[in-house]
């Protein structure tokens, strides 16, 4: 049963990811990405990591994709509705191949012993996040804060006057 669901989710994940690359329409690409990300949340569910799955849906489904869609909507993508690649695609291919080159050996060399899927409690996640991993957590929030302030400054500098 779990195998069947996992295969289904894997097909959805890879299919969505392929859809992002293959489709000629930017909005379709964003929605295909949504399918892929939510299928990943399903993989977390199969692993009994409910908290992680829900956070995945909340952050990636609810927030990231919406930001992407807003970005598509507010830039002048309607002038180029059928353009989804440009001259930089060899660079992108190189970058993703390099990433694969890092990922694949790390899986092959560092073979992790499979353990029984356990129901991870979110209190445990919270405690380790705010004690053991407090510094990385704070750094990540700082990065986000900087990005936010930067966005506000960029938005303000152009038409801050007329908007009041």
């Amino acid at each position: 049963m779990a195998w069947f669901i996992f295969i289904l989710l894997a097909v959805l994940t890879i299919g969505g990811a392929l859809g992002v690359v293959v489709t000629r329409n930017v909005v379709h690409a964003a929605l295909a990405l949504l399918v892929s990300l939510i299928a990943v949340a399903g993989v977390y569910l199969v692993l009994f990591a409910e908290f992680l799955a829900l956070v995945q849906v909340l952050i990636y489904g609810g927030a990231i994709i919406i930001v992407l869609l807003f970005a598509i909507m507010l830039t002048r993508s309607s002038d180029y509705p059928r353009v989804t690649d440009n001259k930089q695609w060899p660079l992108a291919a190189l970058a993703s191949l390099a990433f694969l080159g890092v990922l694949a050996p790390s899986f092959i060399i560092n073979s992790v012993e499979g353990t029984e899927a356990q129901n991870a409690s979110f209190t445990g996640i919270g405690e380790s996040l705010f004690t053991t991993w407090a510094v990385p957590f704070e750094i990540a929030s700082l990065v986000l804060l900087v990005a936010l302030i930067g966005a506000i400054i960029i938005a303000r500098s152009d038409d801050g006057e007329e908007q009041g």
Binding site: L31, L34, L54, V55, V57, L58, G61, G62, A63, I66
Partner: peptide, 8 residues
Amino acid sequence: AVTSITSI
């Protein structure tokens, strides 16, 4: 998480 899909 579930209701956040509504915006999409």
